[in-house]
C-alpha cells in the first residue's frame, strides 16, 4: 500500500491504496467519481481523460501514486453549479449520443481550447480533428463534436 494525497475537484484527498492502483481506479473506485470512464486498455480511447495540474491526461495510464500532490479535475468538477461553456456547447450542438466518451471528450476539448487560446493559435476544424486523435467516439461520427468544440471555443473566448 502507498499513502497518497492529492486535490480532486478542489477537495484534499488522502488515502492508502495498493501501489498498482491507476489514477482512474482511484477516482472511480475509491472516490466514486464514476464520470471518468474506461473504454480501452491501450491508452487510445480517451474516455478516461482528466486534468492533472491543468493538463489533459489519460487517467488509465497514470498510477495514482504518480499524482501525489497534484490538482486533479474530473468531469464532475469541471464547473461549479453552472455548466462549463464546453459542457453547454456539447448539449447545444448535439455533440453526444450514448454519452460514454463524452466526459473524456469534454475534458480533452476544454484542454485543447485552453492551450490554443493561451498560445494565440487559431483552432481550425482541421486542428480540432487532429487534436481529437486520442478520443474515440463510436456514435456521432464526430461531426457534431467538432461543431460543439468550435462553439465551446467561442464561448470560452467570450469568457
Amino acid at each position: 500500500m502507498t499513502e497518497i494525497s492529492m486535490t480532486v475537484n478542489g477537495k484534499r484527498t488522502r488515502a492508502a491504496v495498493p501501489d498498482n492502483t491507476l489514477l482512474v481506479e482511484f477516482l472511480r473506485e475509491h472516490l466514486r467519481l464514476t464520470g471518468t470512464h474506461v473504454g480501452c486498455d491501450t491508452s487510445q480511447c480517451g474516455a478516461c481523460v482528466v486534468h492533472v495540474d491543468g493538463r489533459a491526461m489519460k487517467s488509465c495510464t497514470m498510477l495514482a501514486a504518480s499524482a501525489e500532490g497534484a490538482e486533479v479535475t474530473t468531469i464532475e468538477g469541471l464547473s461549479n453549479g453552472e455548466l462549463h461553456p464546453m459542457q453547454a456547447a456539447f448539449k447545444e450542438n448535439h455533440g453526444l449520443q450514448c454519452g460514454f466518451c463524452t466526459p473524456g471528450m469534454i475534458m480533452s476539448a476544454a484542454d485543447m481550447v485552453a492551450r490554443y487560446q493561451a498560445a494565440g493559435r487559431e483552432l481550425t476544424e482541421k486542428a480540432i480533428r487532429h487534436e481529437l486523435e486520442g478520443n474515440i467516439c463510436r456514435c456521432t461520427g464526430y461531426h457534431n463534436i467538432v461543431r460543439a468544440i468550435q462553439d465551446g471555443a467561442a464561448k470560452m473566448a467570450a469568457g
Binding site: T34, Q87, F90, H94, G99, I106
Partner: peptide
C-alpha cells in the same frame, strides 16, 4: 429539441452498469 438526457452525461452523472456498486 435539445436532448433532455444530456445533462447527466455532460456532468459525469450518467449511470452505466460499471458505475453501480
Amino acid at each position: 429539441v435539445l436532448r433532455k438526457e444530456d445533462k447527466r452525461f455532460i456532468t459525469g452523472k450518467g449511470r452505466y452498469t460499471d458505475d453501480i456498486r
